[in-house]
Amino acid sequence: DLSALRVEEVQNVINAMQKILECPICLELIKEPVSTKCDHIFCKFCMLKLLNQKKGPSQCPLCKNDITKRSLQESTRFSQLVEELLKIICAFQLDTGLEYANSYNFAKKENNSPEHLKDEVSIIQSMGYRNRAKRLLQSEPENPSLQETSLSVQLSNLGTVRTLRTKQRIQPQRTSVYIELGSDSSEDTVNKATYCSVGDQELLQITPQGTRDEISLDSAKKAACEFSETDVTNTEHHQPSNNDLNTTEKRAAERHPEKYQGSSVSNLHVEPCGTNTHASSLQHENSSLLLTKDRMNVEKAEF
Rank of each mutant, 00 (worst) to 15 (best):
K259L: 07
G210D: 09
K31T: 10
S156E: 15
I89L: 03
R70A: 15
T194Y: 03
A16R: 06
L151F: 06
L29D: 05
T149A: 06
P257N: 12
D200A: 05
G199S: 04
E140P: 08
T207N: 07
Q205P: 10
V270S: 04
S281G: 04
E214D: 12
L204Q: 15
G159T: 08
A193E: 15
A253T: 13
C38R: 00
I25V: 03
D294L: 11
I25R: 01
T76R: 03
E99T: 02
N131I: 06
T166W: 00
R132A: 13
T163A: 10
L268K: 08
Y104C: 06
S280E: 15
V34H: 04
T149W: 03
F42L: 02
A133S: 03
T36P: 03
T76K: 09
H269Y: 09
Y195L: 13
F106S: 10
L48Q: 12
T230I: 02
S216M: 12
E254V: 14
Q261N: 12
G56T: 13
Q154P: 14
E214K: 09
T211F: 03
D66N: 12
C90P: 02
N246K: 04
S79L: 03
K259T: 07
K69G: 02
R212M: 09
S152L: 08
L136I: 08
L151A: 05
V82H: 01
L94Q: 04
G199H: 13
P257I: 15
L158M: 04
T233Q: 13
L85A: 09
K250V: 12
L282K: 06
G274D: 13
Y129L: 07
E140Y: 09
T175M: 07
I41G: 03
L151S: 13
S113G: 02
K19H: 01
E8G: 13
T207H: 12
S139L: 14
K69C: 05
T233S: 06
H269S: 06
V265E: 09
L164E: 10
L268Y: 01
V265D: 13
T76L: 10
L289A: 14
Q125D: 13
N143P: 14
A101Q: 15
K250Y: 14
E22R: 03
K134V: 10
N286I: 04
A223R: 06
L217F: 12
T247R: 12
E254S: 15
Y129R: 01
Q171R: 07
L27E: 02
A220S: 02
Q205T: 07
L51K: 04
N52I: 03
